[in-house]
């Protein structure tokens, strides 16, 4: 462990925030993706993640470059366009002890990688699946993506005639047990959601609206900082309380709803806007659809159900990482081969 400055605060593991940074970002100044990276670093530090257990996966895009910019202590895998979920699936099966963070873009996940997104969510891969959603293909210089709102304009003036695909309602439909929408310009909310996400067992889908300052931040865009700020409707004040063996935290009753994770961690949800129940799947769908029709971004924890078993549990895998099993466990004996040969005679 390294210490940045003698006075820097440390977390439960004795690490400073500096221990969770990555390489220097090469994205455009002001890109929403960098704000998300900063929140991942902060939340990982506050959650005292063991850096060596962190794996970071991505596809291709500006967003997919960002795993290089956080948690250098972890292993990164920047793969091919739209295929991050398969990489997360393979690695998370190989080693159940990894903390899997996947970063993708709206192009990476909602077009070329739609099949893999859908099936990873359906399988409940233990991972945080972040979509850094700017409504465009940043890296290929600003073409529309499939999350672009109908009627939104490119800088060139081109208009999008097709309806958007919404990752959040799709994820809820697919049975995802942790679905949230955030805005890269609302660090407090993002921080609480990321911390809750780190404690969650299965697939977390985070659609984070993340303006592309270079290609989609103009007045006619529905993904510009200004537009999103004006239309952001945070649903609630969130508090995340990580499970601790020493202190059991009491949450005051009243307006606050508490969801408890299997490990004992808790999310306290205090509604700001009308009563929104994030444990009600159909109610959540309805509220999201209604808000979309009004052109609002409902942000916060849209849906939560922490009971679904993640894939390694469904497959009934041994607790030890498959990657560390040795020949003594894996290779059947000569007697077994002999029996098999006899059965084929």
């Amino acid at each position: 462990m390294t210490t940045a400055t003698p006075s820097a605060p440390t977390n439960k593991l004795g690490y400073t925030k500096q221990d969770y940074v990555g390489s220097k970002s090469t994205l455009c100044a002001g890109c929403g993706h960098d704000a998300i990276t900063a929140q991942i670093i902060g939340a990982a530090f506050e959650s005292s993640l063991e850096g060596h257990r962190v794996t970071k996966y991505s596809g291709i895009g500006c967003s997919s470059k960002t795993p290089a910019y956080f948690i250098n202590q972890g292993w990164g895998f920047n793969s091919v366009h739209g295929r991050m979920p398969a990489i997360a699936t393979g690695a998370s099966l190989a080693n159940r002890q990894l903390i899997n963070i996947g970063v993708s873009g709206d192009g990476d996940s909602m077009s070329i990688g739609m099949g893999q997104f859908v099936h990873a969510v359906r399988r409940n891969i233990p991972m945080i699946y972040i979509i850094e959603d700017n409504g465009v293909y940043g890296l290929t210089k600003g073409q529309f993506s499939a999350t672009a709102d109908k009627g939104s304009h490119l800088k060139s003036g081109a208009v999008n005639d097709l309806p958007p695909i919404d990752p959040c309602t799709l994820a809820i439909e697919l049975g995802c047990g942790f679905v949230a929408r955030c805005f890269s310009g609302n660090p407090k909310q993002l921080n609480a959601i990321l911390k809750a996400a780190f404690a969650y067992q299965g697939t977390v889908v985070l659609d984070i609206i993340s303006p592309c300052v270079t290609f989609n931040n103009h007045d006619a865009s529905t993904r510009s900082y200004k537009h999103v700020k004006d239309h952001d409707f945070p649903l609630h004040d969130l508090g995340f309380i990580q499970y601790s063996e020493v202190e059991e935290v009491e949450i005051a009753a009243g307006e606050t709803e508490v969801v408890t994770f299997p490990d004992g961690s808790k999310v306290a949800i205090k509604a700001i806007h009308e009563s929104y129940d994030p444990t009600d799947r159909f109610g959540a769908m309805k509220a999201i659809h209604e808000s979309m029709e009004k052109g609002e971004f409902l942000t916060g924890l849209l849906y939560i159900n922490p009971t679904q078993p993640p894939l390694p549990q469904v497959l009934n895998l041994v607790d030890e990482p498959l990657a560390s099993l040795g020949e003594d466990v894996l290779k059947p004996s000569p007697e077994v081969l002999n029996d098999i040969m006899k059965s084929l005679m």
Partner: peptide
């Protein structure tokens, strides 16, 4: 002691194989 997953297609199968190998399986 083995994870067997019928994937959605061969692209995903290849990704699973390589990532699992990368992670030591």
């Amino acid at each position: 002691t083995v994870a067997i997953v019928q994937m959605e297609d061969e692209l995903a199968s290849a990704g699973v194989v390589l990532a699992a190998g990368w992670a030591g399986a």
